[in-house]
Design a protein around this nucleic acid. Structure first.
Lengths: 343, 343
DNA sequence: CTGTTAGCGCGTTCAG
DNA sequence: CTGAACGCGCTAACAG
């Protein structure tokens, strides 16, 4: 229809070529990164200058169709409000842009740990022909759909691993993290401790619990109540869970919260109850979120290796996109304990 | 090359058509949403069943090239860690999927309020031929690049407006929000008050300051210190700014923080200094973030109309994509004051 | 209701 | 070093 107006403002490659009295192929080569050496220096400069002046922008959808490569990567997160996902996400993007794939575009989707949302997202990504997928939201129930998707496109896991399928992954040693906290409690002379666990569907929390409990047994610490699991790892549920801890007998003196949100809820609730932290209850969180650093009582926490995890995930993807082999595999990075005022 | 393996697992439309002894066009129509009525019921079902069975997924990059429509929308946010952006973002996506554009895919980019990052992002979006762009990160210095981008693709603004260019927008009445807080302080009998302002580059904060100051003058409230502006609207800077308030003379008894992060920093710092909230200092934030609700001293705050803003932005975009007219224009939605324990 | 034909805008052969 | 020709996978226009 009246496409003329937009056409005049932004030419396509054909029009650019005509304006220069050159063939489209020459223009294409002159503009490309890796094949511009096949074109005369003079014409190359002439083409690039004209492209600049006329505001030419290559149509990446057309280029993708031709190349069989979209220069997009699908990224699946479970919760966009979770700082740890965002931090890793940023690291991934920074690394992708820095290394190898400068103009790759991420397609970001949120699942909220809903299986059918995950399925839809995978379908959308496949239809959009993403070059690879990174999931920061894997859980065991997704094994089937991930397996079938992995037949069509490289898939990399980050943060959360998954049982029943072996995909290249970038992980944190959550078990070691939990262990550090228990060892810290033991060293401080605590006898009765407890942990407020996140949902077990995510491997993350299962492993933190495992590592913590293991060292407790080794060191003679007793967990009371023995099992306290919240449905969502939020501040609200952290607050709510404090009551059960108060009622436990014997009452624990140190609490390992599976993430900082839960820990903050605990601290808030115990303070409103007139208890002191760390005198009455020592508390340690997980993730080293921004807020944990600026609280009135700075929170002891386990520092998550976000940089390493993000970087490795990005490198795995870039390697898979370039070579389609699995030379690089899963890596597990160590967290570290940050002891602050709350423990 | 050895594309056979993947080809056998996922057919393209041509192969699907051959398997059915039909023409590609018929298959295309049968699979489409709006043109399947042009095809016989029997064949339509036959096609859909076969597509399902063979795992056919339409190649949206090819479809986009042909249709001149990518079914993607670029979304620009300044900071992925800011809950308000995420909340509005979710609302936008929910609304887009709910109404009209069911399988649209968002391309999300973060600028961190950096101009050249914004420019790059716009370029990438234009090259990807997004059908529209929504910016939640507009600021005055972007007027030029936004104007020129707006010539190529519909652009909608949300949360932040901008001087020097009139684009359809979905906004919050920040000025009214600031005014409510001042009125609240006046009603509570405060005499000396102050506000901790966010960066002025964003219209958001400018308007909050304006509304607050205006009502202060009307009601005889005195602002001391008269101007206190943080560089980043974070908890850390909220903490840091408390010292200047303490040193002010006369010392204010009520503080309006331009967002909840700043407010939380203030509360934390005054508590560690042995002051009480609200007895010594009343504090009101802005945004009604999750954390504001679960603090030991629940924070008074201004509730942001995220649902309305997100919904309107989505509807503007959908309308612009479908019709390319500007029948719907800017709307400004009212926030509301939530008085909790901190004031 | 279905088939035929013709591109969308690029990148990559293969010649010259 | 450059031009000519082809096709990526799909949908729209036009016939029948």
């Amino acid at each position: 229809m009246k496409k003329d107006s937009s056409r005049s403002s932004r030419p396509n490659m054909k029009e650019l070529a005509e304006a220069l009295n050159l063939d489209r192929s020459t223009v294409s080569r002159a503009l490309s990164e890796d094949k511009s050496h096949l074109v005369g220096l003079e014409t190359r400069l002439r083409v690039r200058e004209a492209a600049m002046k006329l505001g030419y922008r290559t149509d990446l959808t057309a280029a993708a169709l031709r190349k069989g490569r979209t220069d997009t990567v699908g990224i699946i997160v479970s919760d966009l409000e979770n700082e740890i996902f965002i931090t890793v996400l940023r690291q991934i993007m920074a690394e992708l842009h820095g290394t190898g794939l400068p103009n790759i575009t991420p397609l970001i989707g949120e699942t909220r740990d809903d299986l059918s949302a995950t399925r839809d997202l995978l379908h959308r990504f496949l239809s959009r022909r993403v070059d690879a997928i990174i999931s920061l939201a894997a859980s065991d129930d997704q094994a089937d759909i991930l397996r079938s998707a992995a037949e069509q496109v490289p898939i990399v896991l980050a943060i959360r691993s998954i049982r029943g399928i072996d995909l290249p992954s970038a992980l944190c040693d959550d078990q070691a993290g939990g262990a550090m906290v228990a060892a810290h409690f033991a060293a401080r002379g605590h006898k009765y401790v407890c942990q407020v666990q996140g949902p077990v569907a995510a491997a993350t929390f299962r492993n933190r619990a495992l590592g913590f409990s293991h060292v407790c047994k080794q060191s003679g610490l007793v967990e009371v109540p023995s099992s306290l699991i919240v449905r969502n790892a939020t501040t609200q549920e952290g607050r709510d869970s404090f009551a059960s801890i108060l009622n436990a007998s014997p009452r624990p003196t140190a609490i390992f919260a599976h993430n900082d949100s839960i820990a903050i809820g605990l601290v808030e609730d115990l303070r409103s109850g007139g208890f002191r932290c760390p005198e009455d209850f020592a508390i340690v969180g997980f993730n080293n979120t921004q807020i944990s650093r600026v609280l009135a009582i700075p929170l002891s926490t386990v520092d998550y290796p976000t940089v390493e995890v993000g970087r490795h995930a990005a490198r795995l993807v870039s390697n898979l996109i370039e070579n389609r082999d699995y030379a690089w595999k899963t890596s597990v990075f160590s967290p570290s304990l940050l002891v602050r005022a709350s423990s």
